[in-house]
């Protein structure tokens, strides 16, 4: 049984997220589309950037086009509608505005190449997925853009496929390290403390970005509009009874830089989901060694990882070697080299 059929039984929306540009997102998308067609599934497809144009807007190089089969549901902004190389039946004109016109939801009337793009914000993508599911498709695929990962957030995607490859670095070791970093962030442990969750849920309705929870589960909302740059303030606020620091925002180095590392021993940082973490692999390892701990309200299911052994800069890894190295580093997550046999033969 192919991967897509397995995924379909578990997930309604699946995002393809790239570690970098040219990591192989569109190739993975095309392979999934083909497999879905072979299995007789009907899919909906959208993109956080733009897909299917033959020339890359960043590098000017060639880019794989996207071939959609008859009856696929697809999001196409008004200005890209004319560029489709096949017939599209417009089902709905949405209110989602993009740089290239409002998003149309279309049905592919005849198999062919289509340029795909979706709304700008993740929240609108979430709504678009719901709209598309209403047309009775088996699953929605969201193709990510460049290295944008916010679409992986569990509110939008039930699971993700992570595309990684040689483009990240000339060193195989670095490619593996960076990939493992993202996968392990996405699989961060969830917060299991029921009382703390309840305290948060009560206050979350009000909307705030930074709060402390003490060992008696009392919530203290901090009077700031953003956690960005709040490091020094946090250091002052975290006391010996502070059990959790909850951040409904981005976790960057500036947020924790001002906090004394000793406080990492007694306080755990809590985030809504792992897409909020903006700290690199090396720095993250250093933090963990100092005792830094993270919990998330919801984590991200990594359904599969795809590897692309070729870099557009002209170097390549041994395909089997790259796949094996990633497989060994990611215990239990299926790894595919899509060009070398697609998602077939997945048990």
């Amino acid at each position: 049984m192919g991967l897509i059929k397995q995924l379909k039984t578990k997930y309604r929306t699946l995002a393809i997220v790239g570690m970098a540009k040219n990591a192989g997102k569109t190739t993975a998308l095309n392979s999934l589309l083909e497999e879905a067609f072979d299995e007789g599934l009907t899919l909906a497809v959208t993109s956080t950037g733009r897909d299917g144009e033959s020339t890359d807007v960043v590098s000017g190089g060639d880019k794989p086009k996207v071939y959609l089969f008859t009856d696929t549901i697809v999001s196409v902004p008004e200005k890209l509608y004319d560029l489709a190389e096949t017939g599209l039946e417009i089902l709905q004109r949405t209110e989602y505005r993009t740089a290239v016109g409002n998003v149309l939801i279309c049905r592919v009337a005849d198999s062919g190449y289509v340029q795909i793009a979706g709304p700008g914000s993740v929240r609108e993508h979430q709504k678009l997925c719901e709209d598309m599911l209403d047309y009775g498709v088996d699953m929605v695929l969201i193709d990510g853009a460049i290295d944008r990962k916010s679409i992986a957030a569990p509110e939008t995607s039930d699971a993700i496929i992570l595309a990684t490859g040689a483009v990240i670095s000339r060193s195989l070791k670095v490619v593996v390290e960076e990939t493992v970093h993202i996968v392990s962030l996405y699989q961060s442990p969830t917060l299991e403390d029921e009382e703390a969750i309840a305290a948060l849920a009560k206050e979350r309705r009000e909307g705030f970005c930074l709060a402390l929870i003490d060992d008696e589960n009392q919530l203290d909302v901090m009077p700031v509009r953003t956690s960005l740059g709040a490091g020094a303030l946090l250091d002052e606020a975290i006391g010996e009874h502070t059990k959790y620091v909850y951040i409904d925002g981005a976790l960057t180095e500036s947020v924790i830089a001002g906090i004394h590392p000793k406080k990492f021993q007694t306080t755990t940082f809590v985030l809504p989901d792992p897409t909020r973490i903006f700290i690199g692999a090396t720095k993250w390892q250093q933090l963990l060694k100092k005792g830094f701990r993270i919990r998330v309200l919801r984590n991200i299911k990594v359904a599969a990882v795809t590897v692309n052994p070729f870099s557009p800069s002209g170097y390549a890894f041994d395909p089997a070697g790259l796949k094996q190295s990633i497989e060994e580093a990611l215990d239990g997550i299926p790894v595919f080299d899509v060009r070398m046999g697609g998602f077939e033969s997945y048990e």
């Binding site: 960043v58 929240r123 290295d147 944008r148 970005c209 960005l228 981005a250 960057t252 897409t275 903006f278």
Partner: peptide, 21 residues
Amino acid sequence: DVHIANLTNMVELCEAEGVRD
């Protein structure tokens, strides 16, 4: 292409901060 990674980082931070829309 240094501007590309810098610009996508901007978008992603806005999403994380909940202000993108």
